[in-house]
């Protein structure tokens, strides 16, 4: 796609978006930067604090622990959702009414408000009134997500798998749809095994959309707030207090503006860095495909 003409007037077309996003992103972000280098005793009286907050946070256990939990959470759900999503995509019917039914039912969890997702699992997992909790209790498993560390983590992870695996599956499915039948026929003539078909035909065709799936799942799982907040409230103790939960606690709960702002900036930078790496890989892959 190198046939774009140079036209600086195109800036005029971008202007509305620019104004809108500047209003809703740049101004708030500047406020955050402003807070992060100041201290206050209330009454809107601020005085400069330099990089104090950053140093304090980097030296405190609180942020590192939250970051550790966050990384563990993102790694676990990616390790489950991506292979499972690919597996589901491979098993989805290609066409017909049954395919439509699958598409609609699979998209359903994606369109449920996030706190309702939390509520659903909160109810589902309760030992007294929830199907899952009651079944597990019946089987003699000691399960209580509000008190037990493993139960809380298992619930939060299963909930995320329930909520988002469909996204990976739908993306993978779209990638599979773009493979012409001729490829499969050629593979059949060559008597390729099922694994070879997957490894050399399906996986390369899916790699582009899978990158996007991984990028999206990484970003969104790194920002997760509502669902674990509703289910476990960050507990037991601080066991499921992920970065966003900790941040909201600090900013809106304790109103520690300085540290919260410094926290926000570092948090944002981590996401930005990882996403930039993904984005660069994606665009180079795109370019390579375009040349073929």
């Amino acid at each position: 796609m190198n046939d774009k003409t140079v036209n600086q007037k195109a800036w005029l077309l971008v202007l509305p978006v620019l104004a809108l996003v500047a209003f809703s992103a740049v101004i708030p972000l500047m406020t955050v930067v402003n807070y992060s280098v100041q201290d206050t005793f209330g009454n809107n009286q601020f005085f400069p604090a330099g990089l104090e907050w950053f140093e304090e946070l980097l030296a405190s256990d609180r942020m590192w622990n939250a970051l550790g939990r966050q990384v563990a959470f993102s790694a676990i759900i990616l390790a489950i959702e991506v292979p499972l999503g690919v597996f589901i995509a491979l098993n989805m019917p290609k066409r017909g009414a049954w395919a439509s039914v699958c598409l609609v039912l699979m998209s359903l969890p994606l369109l449920i408000p996030w706190n309702v997702v939390g509520t659903i699992w909160q109810i589902f997992g309760r030992v007294d009134i929830g199907l899952l909790g009651a079944t597990l209790a019946e089987l003699g498993i000691d399960y209580n997500y509000t008190q037990d560390f493993y139960a809380a983590w298992a619930t939060v992870i299963v909930m995320d798998v329930w909520h988002w695996t469909s996204l990976v599956a739908l993306l993978g499915y779209a990638g599979l749809q773009s493979i012409p039948d001729a490829y499969y026929q050629a593979a059949k003539i060559d008597q390729a095994s099922r694994w070879a078909v997957f490894r050399y035909i399906e996986l390369p065709k899916m790699s582009g959309v899978l990158m996007i799936a991984i990028l999206l799942r990484f970003m969104d799982s790194f920002m997760i707030y509502t669902e674990p907040f509703v289910v476990t409230g960050g507990g037991p103790g601080n066991d499921t207090t992920f970065l966003s939960i900790d941040l909201v606690k600090m900013a809106l709960g304790q109103f520690d503006l300085g540290p919260a702002a410094a926290f926000s900036l570092m948090y944002f930078l981590v996401i930005l860095l990882v996403s930039w790496v993904f984005y660069t890989v994606m665009t180079t892959m795109d370019a390579r495909e375009g040349r073929k």
């Binding site: 996003v21 972000l29 966003s244 941040l247 809106l252 919260a260 900036l265 944002f268 984005y279």
Partner: peptide
């Protein structure tokens, strides 16, 4: 533009409230 899709809403909650 895309980085704004990546911004955690928790970061923006407080400044939005004030703005």
């Amino acid at each position: 533009l895309l980085t704004n899709r990546m911004a955690p809403p928790a970061v923006f909650a407080l400044p939005f409230f004030q703005l």
